[in-house]
């Protein structure tokens, strides 16, 4: 029963995940933090940061972490399958039909609306994560530097690695956990 409900919860998220990876995280926050209360904002942070640093598709990693949290390895299999199912189905059904959005003006307009929703979701997600994670001036500094670095289209891996080293140095110098 638990596995079936994991599958369908992620199916629902996968179905509305326009715009890829981070949309899934934002949707998951709405579903699992606010509505079902399976996880806290803090755990969402942990999973997001781990998904980002590990190899693989971020949204797949993220679903796997949540599934694993709820039901071990089998749970992660159900969560990931549920999430990719709509994407697989959509491609199998549409691969022949759609080549260019221009042929379908209504679809294009609807998608323009959806993009606005996605941007709002991401901004809300960013604020909620900032409130949960950033507890010191040093943390804010790391966040702002990463923000600027990636804004200039440089590799997102670099600020994450530098931040990790900073956290290590912080602990060695001050003898307490970085917050």
């Amino acid at each position: 029963m638990k596995f079936i409900s994991l599958f369908f919860a992620f199916f629902k998220i996968g179905l509305f995940a326009f715009g890829g990876g981070y949309t899934i995280v934002a949707l998951a926050r709405s579903e699992f933090v606010n509505k079902r209360r399976w996880i806290s904002d803090g755990e969402l942070c942990d999973f997001l940061a781990l998904s980002q640093t590990l190899p693989g598709i971020i949204s797949v990693n993220f679903a796997a972490f949540l599934g694993n949290r709820q039901g071990g390895f089998i749970g992660s299999v159900f969560a990931v399958s549920g999430m990719v199912f709509p994407a697989v189905l959509a491609i199998l059904l549409l691969a022949h039909l759609i080549t260019e959005a221009n042929n379908y003006p209504v679809l294009k307009s609807a998608l323009a609306g959806v993009r606005i929703a996605v941007a709002v979701m991401l901004l809300t997600l960013t604020f909620s994560q900032a409130r949960t994670v950033l507890k010191s001036r040093f943390g804010v500094l790391l966040a702002v530097s990463a923000f600027i670095w990636i804004l200039f289209d440089l590799s997102p891996a670099v600020p994450l690695i530098i931040a990790g080293i900073a956290g290590w140095l912080f602990y060695r110098q001050k003898g307490k956990v970085f917050e």
Partner: peptide, 9 residues
Amino acid sequence: NAVKAAVVG
């Protein structure tokens, strides 16, 4: 924790 701060950025 430091990596999480960078993820916010």
